[in-house]
């Protein structure tokens, strides 16, 4: 037989690497395009009279809506398998993780299925956003207090 160290080396030798260049290029194009679409939408909302801050918030809502729709139609996962981080990192990925969990657990009921599982993938993101935000708030409070 083989010891752990040698076997790990053997695994490494035989495991194909991800095509990094191709993955990164696709992530760049998709991520960039989604951001650019966001920017165009923002200018559009400003043009129609929204304030700058509000228009960027509306962009977030729009992208979440579109992601939800594409996820429901079964298109999102087929784009994401090529786009990788390009659809994961924009708010589209966050929306997809919430929406896909919700759709997936429908069969287990609307309360214990959808209700509890809707957070399975997105829960950590929300938790750590709140947690780090809170910590920042405390630090900020004391910094402003003493300066």
């Amino acid at each position: 037989m083989e010891n752990s160290k040698d076997y790990k080396k053997r695994i490494k030798r035989h495991t194909p690497k991800s095509p990094i260049f191709k993955d990164c290029l696709l992530a760049f194009v998709f991520g960039g395009a989604i951001s650019a679409i966001g920017e165009i939408l923002a200018s559009l909302y400003i043009y129609f009279g929204a304030e700058e801050q509000t228009s960027y918030t509306l962009v977030t809502v729009t992208l979440i809506f579109v992601s939800a729709l594409l996820t429901g139609l079964g298109v999102f996962d087929n784009i994401a398998r090529y786009a990788g981080a390009g659809t994961l990192v924009p708010v589209t990925g966050f929306a997809n993780s919430v929406v896909s969990s919700a759709i997936d657990t429908k069969a287990e009921g609307l309360i214990l299925g959808v209700g509890s599982k809707i957070f399975t993938v997105a829960g950590p993101v929300i938790l750590y956003a709140i947690l780090s935000g809170s910590i920042l708030g405390v630090i900020y409070y004391f910094v402003t207090l003493f300066s």
Binding site: G31, G32, E39, A85
Partner: peptide, 14 residues
């Protein structure tokens, strides 16, 4: 927006 948004995604992909 395209460049910065794309680059942020590339870092995640790496």
């Amino acid at each position: 927006a395209f460049l910065i948004g794309g680059l942020i995604c590339v870092v995640a992909q790496l």
